[in-house]
Simulated scan of single mutants.
Amino acid sequence: MPILEVENVSLKFGGVKALNDVTYHVNKGEIFSLIGPNGAGKTSMLNCISGLYKPSSGSIKFKGKDILGMKPYNRTSLGIARAFQNIALFEHMSVLDNLKLGRHVKMKTGLLSGGIYWRSAEKEEVHHRRSVEEVIEFLEMQDYRNTPVGTLPYGLQKRVEVGRALALEPELILLDEPMAGMNNAEKEDMARFILDMHELKGMTVFLIEHDMGVIMDLSDHIAVLDFGERIGFGTSKEIQKNPNVIRAYLGEQEEVS
Score class of each variant (00 low, 15 high):
216 M>H: 05
182 M>S: 07
99 L>P: 03
220 D>S: 14
139 L>W: 08
123 K>T: 02
43 T>Y: 06
239 I>C: 02
99 L>R: 07
36 G>N: 11
170 P>S: 02
19 L>K: 09
10 S>R: 09
24 Y>S: 00
52 L>W: 10
215 I>E: 07
185 A>T: 14
38 N>S: 11
97 D>M: 00
95 V>N: 06
16 V>Q: 02
193 F>D: 13
17 K>A: 07
143 D>Y: 03
122 E>R: 15
246 I>N: 01
11 L>I: 00
26 V>A: 03
125 E>F: 12
29 G>F: 12
28 K>P: 00
128 H>D: 03
103 R>G: 09
95 V>L: 14
16 V>Y: 14
163 G>L: 09
125 E>V: 02
120 S>W: 12
182 M>W: 04
59 S>F: 04
218 L>W: 06
46 L>Y: 13
100 K>V: 03
187 K>W: 01
112 L>Y: 12
54 K>G: 01
222 I>E: 04
146 N>K: 13
224 V>R: 03
253 Q>R: 14
53 Y>M: 04
54 K>Y: 10
126 V>Y: 06
95 V>P: 06
153 P>F: 02
130 R>M: 12
227 F>K: 13
13 F>W: 02
120 S>C: 04
250 L>F: 14
110 G>H: 07
4 L>H: 07
66 D>Y: 10
1 M>G: 07
147 T>L: 14
69 G>D: 10
111 L>V: 03
101 L>A: 15
63 K>W: 09
155 G>Q: 07
183 N>K: 11
143 D>E: 15
50 S>K: 08
122 E>L: 13
129 R>I: 08
82 R>Q: 04
129 R>N: 12
210 H>W: 08
187 K>A: 12
132 V>Q: 04
193 F>Y: 15
133 E>R: 11
34 L>D: 05
